[in-house]
């Protein structure tokens, strides 16, 4: 289930984040991603949504080697 962005906006977000990771460079990508998550959290209307997103993102982390 998805509520917020339309499919095309989500595609745009995909491209924008990918490009931003590349601009950050390997040394700074973790910090960039942490800042991005925090910034997006401030846009959420309830902590429950943040908790749910964290749980979702935690799944299968160890299953695959990082790219």
């Amino acid at each position: 289930m998805r509520t917020g962005l339309s499919e095309s906006d989500l595609e745009q977000a995909y491209d924008l984040i990918a490009a931003a990771i590349d601009r950050a460079g390997r040394d700074h990508e973790s910090l960039f991603l942490a800042k991005l998550c925090l910034a997006l959290s401030t846009q959420m209307t309830s902590i429950d949504s943040v908790v749910a997103a964290i749980r979702t993102a935690e799944q299968d982390l160890r299953e695959r080697a990082p790219p």
Binding site: L10, I21, D22, E29, D60, P67
Partner: peptide, 27 residues
């Protein structure tokens, strides 16, 4: 065929999330 590390990470993230839910499947 992700051209950069940024796209590679986003592809992996979208696929991994798609295993458990609809939210990123359209990607």
């Amino acid at each position: 065929t992700p051209p950069t590390r940024g796209y590679q990470l986003l592809q992996t993230a979208a696929l991994s999330l798609a295993v458990h839910g609809e939210s990123t499947r359209s990607l």
